[in-house]
């Protein structure tokens, strides 16, 4: 059974994609306000997809605003029984 902590994964992804160390990520963090450009954000999404073996549909991503929203989306896409926290 997989356990995923979204803020940790998010910070790892941001570091890999943009070289930025962001250490204050919580569920309330608004992704658009992190100063990542639109390309970096999509690369970050790719990072999540690769790590978790999921596919996030574009139309669902359009509605994601906060890290918690992302968490909810991930939770919905992960196999049942997986533990997703933020």
């Amino acid at each position: 059974m997989a356990t995923v902590h979204i803020p940790t994964l998010f910070a790892q992804a941001a570091l890999e994609v943009s070289g930025k160390k962001i250490d204050t990520i919580t569920g309330q963090t608004v992704i658009a306000k992190l100063g990542l450009d639109s390309v970096a954000v999509m690369e970050l999404v790719a990072h999540f997809e690769e790590k978790l073996h999921i596919r996030m549909p574009d139309e669902d991503l359009a509605k994601v605003q906060t890290v918690a929203d992302l968490g909810n989306l991930v939770k919905r896409l992960m196999p049942p029984g997986s533990e997703v926290t933020w």
Partner: peptide, 12 residues
Amino acid sequence: YPPLSLGKLDSY
């Protein structure tokens, strides 16, 4: 263009 991802829906 289609809606951009992650939190830009309002300006879109």
